[in-house]
Simulated assay, not measured.
Amino acid sequence: MPFTLATWNINSVRLREGLVAKLLEEEAPDVLCLQECKSPVEKIPLEGFAALGYRHIVARGQKGYNGVAILSKLPIEEVGDVDFARLGHARHVAAKLENGVTIHNVYAPAGGDIPDRDANVKFGQKLDYFTHMREHFGAERPHKAILVGDLNIAPREDDVWNHKQLLKVVSHTPVEVELFEATREAGAWEDVTRADIPSGNLYSWWSYRSPDWDAADKGRRLDHIWASRDIAAAAHGSRIHRPARGWEQPSDHAPVFASFDL
Rank of each mutant, 00 (worst) to 15 (best):
K43W: 01
S199V: 01
G18N: 14
K168A: 09
E181L: 15
D261E: 14
T173N: 06
D252Q: 09
N120T: 08
K63M: 10
P155A: 04
I225E: 03
I153N: 02
D191T: 06
R221D: 05
N120M: 10
R117T: 09
V82I: 13
A28S: 15
H236M: 05
D83T: 09
D196P: 00
V256Q: 08
K144Q: 09
V58D: 07
G237W: 11
D116R: 03
K168I: 03
H163I: 00
A51N: 12
F130T: 02
G61M: 11
R209T: 12
H104K: 04
S171Q: 13
A94N: 04
T102E: 14
A244Y: 14
V256N: 08
A186M: 08
F260M: 09
H143R: 15
V177L: 06
A233Q: 11
M133S: 01
G18Y: 03
P29E: 10
E98G: 10
H236G: 07
S199Q: 12
K38F: 06
D252Y: 10
Y107K: 02
F260L: 10
S39W: 02
V170E: 11
D217W: 08
V148R: 00
A232V: 14
R141H: 03
L15M: 12
A145I: 00
F260Q: 05
P75M: 08
P45H: 02
V175Q: 13
I10M: 07
D191G: 09
G112V: 10
L74V: 06
D30W: 07
G237V: 11
P155H: 05
R91V: 01
F137W: 15
S39M: 05
E26H: 04
D230T: 02
P45V: 05
G48M: 04
A110R: 15
L97A: 10
A235V: 04
S39N: 03
Q62R: 13
Q125W: 12
I146S: 04
E78P: 10
